[in-house]
Design a protein around this nucleic acid. Structure first.
Lengths: 217, 217
DNA sequence: TAGAATCTAGAATCTATATTCTAACCGCCG
DNA sequence: CGGCGGTTAGAATATAGATTCTAGATTCTA
């Protein structure tokens, strides 16, 4: 979808669709394993068993390739979340449950995509398309998360359950990014808590907040 | 300090110290205003009214320059925090006060350094020196923040006041990074709360947590 | 103040990467 | 089959940016 913005013809033959797919996979894997810096056209081509000519025939330029990767990754994550949300048993769900569930779902959905998101954010600073796509995704994720929390927040009797849910969602987002950042920096900060514990604490924080959203003076 | 790791002679003459200083300032300003991508040796040289030869005589290579910038920025931030902490009137300080104070101090100290930190993190992924320096700084900041919270957390009667303070500090850190990320992405996310409001909410969250750190089932 | 040490300028060089171009290859339709 | 688009390969080109080199300028020291 994104790559059509450039004057690149849609593939007509299967083999072409194949190479396009292989290129996308290789590009994604490359960023995941070595970070955005390592995404060179030559390396992508090498890993995808295609040629530089093919890459340009399919994507027009490197930027378009990156956009396509972003599109694919974000869609996958959203789908994964939706999928897991569909499985929730809403009836037997306390507030605490829903918070923990939210965190689990979030983590599963974007497992391993750390570097990808990093790349999108950093380059979003100079690439409007990347940025816009990133916005869309963040908003979508936030909405999905609100969906998870809304019912129990409502039951608890919040004045504005949605607003509360949104704050909680951002909190989760923020903490995740902090965590990602630390792990990106090459392994967790020495002396910091292990991930599971961190999640547990975060859950505590959010639960505490949802149970008591009014300013505490 | 960092630049001595390379075989670069310390300046003997004043003018040399001057150009070193101008180069550092220019490099920092450049990253601040245009992001790390814009940090080219040529541009630094242009903005600092020096020459490429001077830059290499002083820093050895571009990496060392970046390390030096990091050192300077992080030291400045730590000093600023320490400085503000020294002014706190500990006697008249409620828990809520100390949390708000923490957030203010944090914000003041790193005001405008968003892109710099972004650059350090991203490049820390491939540069061990940058990473190590970043760790040191994060730990230092966390300790300073704990210092701010500890007294009131203690008075509230926490079982483990320091642990609670540490969680709160991380939370603040996380939220700040989330905020930075959004602003880096080119202006706040449409529909998101204005910064002050965000700070207020964050304060609420942390206060709620500090008053009730035990898991709420 | 002469000579040595230090420092600066900036042209020239080197390198890594994106991108273009062209010849050959493949698969489908007559 | 024949040939015509669609597709691929990879050598050649273009370019941005880091780094080296050296002549000349400045400051220090005796």
């Amino acid at each position: 979808m994104a790559e059509t913005l450039h004057e690149v013809k849609e593939p007509r033959q299967q083999r072409s669709r194949d190479s396009q797919e292989r290129i996308l996979k290789a590009a994604e894997a490359l960023i995941k394993s070595k970070g955005f810096e390592a995404l060179t056209t030559a390396e992508v081509v090498r890993r995808s068993n295609t040629s530089i000519g093919t890459l340009y025939a399919r994507f027009g330029d490197k930027t378009a390739l990156l956009h396509a990767v972003q599109d694919r990754v974000q869609s996958r994550e959203e789908a994964c979340m939706r999928n897991q949300i569909a499985k929730i048993d809403w009836d037997a769900l306390t507030l605490a449950d829903s918070v923990r569930r939210l965190l689990e779902i979030k983590q599963t959905a974007c497992d391993g995509d750390d570097r990808l998101f990093e790349a999108f954010v950093v380059h979003g600073a100079t690439d409007p398309v990347l940025r816009a796509q990133g916005y869309r995704h963040k908003a979508a994720v936030e909405n999905l998360e609100v969906e998870i929390l809304l019912k129990s927040a409502d039951e608890i009797g919040h004045a504005d359950p949605e607003a509360a849910a949104r704050v909680a969602s951002r909190l989760a987002q923020a903490a995740q990014e902090e965590y990602v950042q630390r792990s990106l920096a090459g392994g967790p900060l020495p002396g910091s808590a292990p991930p599971e514990l961190l999640l547990e604490r975060l859950a505590d924080v959010i639960i505490a907040y949802l149970k008591n959203p009014a300013p505490v003076a």
